[in-house]
């Protein structure tokens, strides 16, 4: 190297040489960049995707507002605490997400997902005709209902405002439709049982399966509707994911001392919480929305539960208040 130190005449050509190589590199980089975002590449864009009344861009703004990336990853970037969300929509489908997101502190039960799939609109959005078909189309939802239903999740309950859940689903629908060049890698390591056994050992899987088969179907209350049956039903339907049995507010109002109290409604009126009001709030929650809570968060249960089940649940709610005791 003749131009090492001290020789002033070497400085200028050396700087120029480095600069010209740098300019060449920048030109390559910018050319590649232009080709990355041409329409002809066919990459999906947020304006092409919507869910219910919302565009994917509405959802992206909500995604940023809650700093979802601060726990999850999206296209692999983020915080590595929660799961990657890029393909979540394809994996679990919109009905599971509708059931999960409002009460993210715990995982939805089959009944909670089924509730959403009663509406023809949701069936159409999910692209299926029945709950069974939904589980086939979205294996992630089936896996979660099998393994996680009713269990506590690591995610906090976020008090989503009206429409925010649907907006987030619109964004996830968009990211799931993106071409990520095959990432994350496809799973090739066998059936779910095999893969779970790799982490937890076969004995634990067997035990879990045994307990699943031993657990009875949701009770259809025959005979008198008792508060004990109601208590079992609110667990099976996943109601307690959103409602506390005391007066604390989770996603919806707490049930403690609710019966017999005066409930202020969003339209400014007040209603007395008698049995008829409680029954109607379960059957058709949006008919009388409580002040301070957005409409549309709780799905209507009118087509899903039988009259005896409703009576049992109301009896349970009554038993949670002093007036009822």
């Amino acid at each position: 190297m003749s131009c090492t130190t001290g020789d002033k005449s070497c400085e200028t050509p050396r700087r120029r040489g480095a600069l010209s190589v740098l300019v060449l590199m920048a030109a390559i980089f910018l050319t590649l960049s232009v080709f990355s975002f041409l329409d002809s590449r066919g990459q999906v864009t947020p304006d092409q995707i919507s869910y219910k009344d919302y565009s994917a861009d509405d959802g992206k703004r909500i995604f940023q507002a809650y700093n979802c990336m601060g726990c999850h990853t999206i296209v692999g970037n983020g915080a590595y605490l929660g799961p990657d969300l890029t393909k979540e929509y394809n994996h679990t489908g919109p009905a599971w997400l509708e059931a999960f997101l409002p009460s993210a502190g715990s995982f939805p039960t089959a009944a909670a997902v089924r509730t959403h799939l009663i509406s023809p609109e949701q069936l159409k959005l999910s692209g299926v005709t029945s709950f069974e078909e939904y589980l086939e189309k979205y294996p992630g939802a089936a896996e979660r209902l099998d393994r996680r239903a009713g269990k506590v999740s690591h995610m906090p309950n976020l008090q989503f405002r009206e429409g925010e859940v649907a907006k987030l689903i619109a964004f996830l629908k968009y990211t799931a439709a993106m071409n990520n060049e095959g990432w994350p890698p496809a799973i090739q390591a066998g059936s779910l049982e095999t893969r779970v056994a790799k982490v937890h050992g076969t004995s634990l899987v067997a035990a879990a399966n045994a307990s699943v088969s031993a657990s009875p179907e949701p009770v259809s209350a025959s005979g008198g509707a008792t508060a004990e049956q109601g208590e079992k039903l609110v667990t099976d339907y996943g109601c307690v994911a959103c409602h506390a049995t005391d007066t604390t507010q989770k996603v919806g109002p707490g049930w403690g001392d609710l019966f017999g109290s005066s409930v202020p409604l969003a339209d400014g009126t007040t209603v007395k919480a008698d049995q008829a009001y409680l029954a109607e709030s379960i059957r058709n929650p949006d008919a009388q929305v409580v002040k301070g809570y957005p409409a549309g968060v709780m799905p209507p249960y009118k087509d899903l539960i039988k009259q005896e089940e409703l009576d049992a649940m109301v009896a349970y709610l009554v038993s949670l208040s002093k007036a009822g005791k």
């Binding site: 605490l81 799961p83 990657d84 393994r147 893969r195 790799k198 982490v199």
Partner: peptide
């Protein structure tokens, strides 16, 4: 471990699978 459980086995349940592993 996370790469193995999440990407190879495809189990992404953070409180049930990933965190315990």
């Amino acid at each position: 471990v996370q790469a193995y459980v999440m990407r190879v086995l495809g189990l992404e349940w953070s409180s049930g699978d990933v965190s315990p592993a």
